[in-house]
Design a protein around this nucleic acid. Sequence first.
DNA 1: CTCGAATGATTGCAATTAGAATAGTTTGAG
DNA 2: CTCAAACTATTCTAATTGCAATCATTCGAG
Lengths: 141, 141
Amino acid sequence: MTTERETRAQTDRELCGLINGLAKQIEAHLRVRAATLGLTASQGAALRELTRPMTLRELAERMSCEPSNATFVADRLEEQGYLERHPHPGNRRAKQLVLTPAGAELRERLLGLLSEDSPLAPLASEEQDVLRRLLARAVIR
Amino acid sequence: MTTERETRAQTDRELCGLINGLAKQIEAHLRVRAATLGLTASQGAALRELTRPMTLRELAERMSCEPSNATFVADRLEEQGYLERHPHPGNRRAKQLVLTPAGAELRERLLGLLSEDSPLAPLASEEQDVLRRLLARAVIR
DNA sequence: CTCGAATGATTGCAATTAGAATAGTTTGAG
DNA sequence: CTCAAACTATTCTAATTGCAATCATTCGAG
């Protein structure tokens, strides 16, 4: 016989597998789209998250990675002329990462590519809303 | 003004962020629980996926990683005495990864730890069911 | 049967990522 | 004011992961 606790644990593992699988699909989707623009997946993620000028630490937070890694990615984007490090107004420790015009344009192109054939396309708008509410309850912000 | 297309794309990005965030939480959860058993996160994932004797390629598939990486992880588990490579009946190319008694016991302990304080605990059983159905529709199997 | 293509695992190497240490800056207790 | 602790970014090093090449085996067309 299977107890309530056991079936709950089983459902839990199944859900974790689905979420990880979907995350991998989203990552792969980003990877191929970024590649068409000459970017790695990490560079694409950085560009995607740079909705506004922000600090390196905040970018790392949004990319779910270590600051040292964000430094590395920012270096590459800076070399390619998509990004600049500006002194942060009011905090000389920090630097403000700001997209160049070329970077901003590339970002728009990337966002356009990412919205095509999204892994979430199989879901209707209402279903996406339900999904969003459920996930928001589970994710620690 | 914002078009229908734009809001859809925005919701899409928001959802992707939530899914990635939750996946990271699940990964972190696995990492700390595995660490209490002297395992890395990858080793823990391998142990979790070894529901039955399987081939290295199948394990890699379930772990969403390259076979070369699965070889590496299997080496470690084998060194620690949790895993054995048996000749595969009916296919001399393949090897069957089978847990030792110590490995099977460790797996049970890991599963127990993973079921505690799951990142999905904030959701009720019915909500988890809804979530599972929605995710299953989006994930390519 | 036979040989080329495909499969499964492994190895070596390159790229990516994380973690600890460091330098400069800021903050706040006293 | 002063100084210790915290913060921000960077550097260096190590671990992890992916990719291409290789070896052994299997499959299948002819």
